[in-house]
Every structure is written in structure tokens, then in C-alpha cells.
């Protein structure tokens, strides 16, 4: 396949305190098999070799599971293909000569640290507030002692696969973190192991979510549409139910 050319417009910001701006770059010799991050690697190689600072972005596993990467590409978190993280987005999904605007996630709760890197520690704080089942190592009973129907267990899995990338917040017009929080609440609500602490958990996690400055859910469904792991809106409904039950 022939090489491709792109016009990139990338948000550059030195650190949290300074103001940022968009910088344009032309990039050619992009192979359609390259991932979006590899395309940026190619740009960065060029920048570094000429002594300039490369575009900073979070990334690690590059196979769609660690949740590190995430960019707002042409108006869409993780780019145009639903169900993919940025690291899995191949350049063949773009057209030769396309202009691509790349922005960091924007939310009050996710301040920009540098270029395309944002601080997502708010997510960790929500999980610390209650995203766990309190069982001490050694205290567990035999794994098959509690039977769980396959349907329930599979459903819990579908909620549990959230990678914590923040695309739900990035795509929500209100920068709400409800999908993220509801995925964890749902996982534990669907499993008997999670029931003991269900009430305390949902109260604590919702309270922490509010404290972090995320917006409110207005059921637009943007999060579901842009979640790379296709976590469903039904989780939010379940979170709501769990919350009412907790009072």
C-alpha cells in the first residue's frame, strides 16, 4: 500500500501552569499499517532528531488494555472507529491527505499536564473511595462455594472490562464520570461477593465522583458510543438503582 500524508494540528502545552496552543505539522511517509501512536512516534523522531521537544502523550501497552493512551482526534475520543483505543487505531482508517486535529481530554477533573497528557488521578481517588470488596488475603472461602449463574458472571465481566482511559468523560458534553463509576458499581452489584458492602460503596464512590468536579449525567449516551470497551449505559441505570437502594 502506498504511503500516506497528513496535516496534523496538535495541542502543545509546556505544563499545567502555562497556556497552550495548537501547532501544525506536516507528516508524510506514513504507512497505513501504522497505529495512530506510531504515527506520532514518527513525528516525534523527526522532532527529537532536530533537537526539539517531542509531543508528550501517555501510552504503554499499545494493545488496547492498559488505558494509558487517549486523545481527542477530530472531535472524537480515540478517533473515528468505535471500539478502539488510540493505540489500536490504524492509520488506514484515515484518508491520505487528511487534516487531523489532536487535543487532550478536556475536563475540569482532568487538568492538562503537558501536551496531550492529562491528570486522571481523579479516577483513582474514586476507586480508592470504595471500588473494592473488603477481603483480606487468606480469608477467602473456597472459590466454588458461591455459585454464580453464567449470565450474571458474564454480565459482571462486561462491566469489569473498563480500562479507565477516560474517554467517557472526554466525550460527555458534561464531562461526567458516571459510566466509569457505574462500571465498577455494576461489576460488584452483579456478584454476590459485592453485596455486603454495596450500600457504603455506592455512596462513597458517588460522593467522591462529585468531589472531583465531574459533571452530571444527562443520559445523552455519548460515553457509551465512544467507550473503547463498549461499556453499556445500562450500567448507569444500575448505579442509579444501587444509589437509591443505599438510602
Amino acid at each position: 500500500m502506498p504511503d500516506m500524508k497528513f496535516k496534523l494540528k496538535i495541542w502543545r502545552q509546556k505544563n499545567e501552569k502555562t497556556k497552550g496552543s495548537f501547532v501544525s505539522y506536516d507528516l508524510d511517509n506514513v504507512s497505513p499499517d501504522m497505529s495512530f501512536l506510531e504515527m506520532l512516534d514518527a513525528l516525534n523522531k523527526r522532532l527529537v532528531e532536530s533537537g526539539k521537544e517531542p509531543v508528550a502523550f501517555d501510552h504503554d501497552c499499545r494493545e488496547g488494555i492498559c488505558g494509558s493512551c487517549g486523545m481527542y482526534i477530530n472531535g472524537l475520543p480515540h478517533g473515528p472507529v468505535p471500539g478502539l483505543t488510540t493505540c489500536h487505531l490504524a492509520m488506514r482508517y484515515f484518508n491520505d491527505g487528511d487534516s487531523i486535529t489532536i487535543e487532550p481530554w478536556r475536563a475540569k477533573a482532568f487538568p492538562v499536564i503537558k501536551d496531550l497528557i492529562v491528570d486522571r488521578s481523579a479516577f483513582d481517588r474514586i476507586q480508592v473511595a470504595g471500588g473494592f470488596i473488603s477481603v483480606t488475603a487468606g480469608a477467602a472461602s473456597e472459590a466454588n462455594a458461591i455459585l454464580i449463574t453464567k449470565t450474571k458472571s458474564d454480565e459482571a465481566f462486561d462491566s469489569a472490562i473498563c480500562i479507565g482511559c477516560g474517554a467517557c468523560v472526554a466525550s460527555c458534553k458534561n464531562a461526567s464520570a458516571m459510566l466509569f463509576v457505574s462500571a465498577k458499581i455494576s461489576q460488584f452489584a452483579l456478584l454476590p461477593q459485592g453485596h455486603v458492602e454495596a450500600k457504603a460503596r455506592v455512596r462513597a464512590m458517588v460522593q467522591e465522583m462529585d468531589r472531583q468536579g465531574f459533571g452530571n449525567c444527562s443520559n445523552t449516551g455519548a460515553c457509551e458510543a465512544r467507550c473503547p470497551k463498549q461499556i453499556k449505559l445500562t450500567n448507569i441505570a444500575r448505579l442509579n438503582r444501587e444509589y437509591y437502594k443505599a438510602y
Partner: peptide, 13 residues
Amino acid sequence: IDHYTALGVPFAR
């Protein structure tokens, strides 16, 4: 396996 199951790891069933 017992511990992970108790922690809510949704292993296949």
C-alpha cells in the same frame, strides 16, 4: 483463585 474470586474477579463460569 479463592482470593481473586472473593475480590470479585469475574472468572468464566
